[in-house]
Nucleic acid binder design. Structure first.
Length: 85
DNA sequence: GCTGAGCGT
């Protein structure tokens, strides 16, 4: 299950995201979307969880919750956009 | 060094 995480603190890193979600289940990968030029966080990211029910629990538990001092938004992600680099 | 909606280099 792909999970979309928004309104992250700009200093939050991908490992911080993964650590937060691992409390509720297995996390295969976590990612913070960085700006292509400045490499700074765009303030949102994605988390991949193999187990769907654990993913839903993690979403329910972390949505509207606080991470690194910021209230984040967690919801199922949309399909990946087409590769147009 | 900075900002604050929203879906990925």
């Amino acid at each position: 299950m792909n999970i979309f995480v928004a309104k992250l603190n700009f200093k939050t890193r991908k490992e911080d995201l993964q650590a937060a979600f691992e409390q509720f289940g297995e996390v295969s990968s976590a990612k913070i979307v960085l700006d292509r030029d400045t490499k700074r966080s765009k303030g949102f990211g994605f988390v991949e969880m193999p187990n769907d029910n654990e993913a839903l629990q993690a979403i329910a538990a972390l949505n509207e919750k606080e991470l690194d001092g910021r209230v984040i938004v967690v919801k199922p992600a949309n399909p990946k956009p087409a590769n147009n680099y």
